[in-house]
């Protein structure tokens, strides 16, 4: 297997990086390109930019953010939020992104996953799954999608998804640890790479997640502070996690 990955996640709204607890109470914490470049320098394995205020206007700004990020960083990055069609996804990839993330749009119309995989290749299609109590939630976790998380994960794989980004709403922003039981169930249910998200509070949490998932999404644990990524990588190495030498 490739090396375990650390993926700083930048929630973007209106072209700025924002952070909220349990998907609410958004506050401005910086410029996505500057922060992304700083994380890249600090040893990030890839980056995720999620537009959490995705509207029709925001889609244009996602393409612009992708283009600006590509000029500054030479590691892979994913853009998600507001992508509802192959045309939306192609625009983001042509701007220099490597993958697109889809969530509510895929729940509303699952065939979107097949369309994206056919044109872009599975490796470019990340399906983000927000889950609470074993159920899937949509629209920034505000609605019940009336689906079981394991069944939806299997359907995503069958339709051609390349990776699953699984966020535990129960844990998001709480720093109480990733939902390891959920991650283990998904690992057994699909053969896709799984990116763990939601709940990281310390290096031990991340190390535990990387035992059951291929990658860990890092948000509030980093405090929008690239220096924290440097120290976290050192702590993980001390815990025996074989991270890439990014020099």
């Amino acid at each position: 297997m490739p090396l375990p990955r650390l993926i700083p996640c930048l929630d973007v709204a209106g072209g700025r990086v924002v952070k909220g607890v349990r998907f609410r109470e958004l506050r401005d914490v910086g410029d996505p390109v500057e922060l992304g470049a700083a994380y890249s320098e600090a040893g990030a394995d890839e980056l995720v930019f999620l537009d959490v205020a995705a509207t029709v206007e925001a889609r244009g700004s996602a393409v612009e953010v992708a283009a600006r990020v590509a000029e500054r960083v030479s590691i892979p990055f994913t853009v998600g939020g507001g992508i509802r069609s192959v045309a939306d996804a192609t625009a983001v990839l042509e701007a220099g992104a490597d993958k697109v993330g889809v969530n509510s749009a895929a729940l509303a119309r699952p065939a979107l996953i097949e369309e994206l995989a056919e044109v872009l290749g599975s490796q470019a299609v990340v399906v983000a799954i927000d889950t609470e109590g074993g159920r899937v939630r949509s629209h920034a976790a505000t609605r019940d999608a009336a689906r079981d998380v394991v069944e939806w994960a299997r359907e995503c794989e069958a339709r051609g998804a390349g990776e699953l980004l699984v966020t535990s709403i129960d844990r998001d922003g709480t720093r109480s640890g990733y939902d390891l039981e959920l991650l283990a169930r998904l690992r057994d249910a699909v053969s896709l790479p799984v990116i763990a998200s939601g709940g990281a509070g310390c290096a031990e949490h991340v190390a535990a997640a990387l035992q059951v998932a291929e990658a860990a999404l890092l948000a509030s644990i980093l405090h929008e502070n690239p220096a924290r990524l440097v120290s976290l990588r050192e702590e993980l190495r001390d815990l025996g996690v074989p991270l890439r030498d990014a020099a």
Partner: peptide, 9 residues
């Protein structure tokens, strides 16, 4: 392994 094979190696 997991397919697609995605990551640094």
């Amino acid at each position: 392994g997991r397919v697609p094979r995605i990551g640094w190696a």
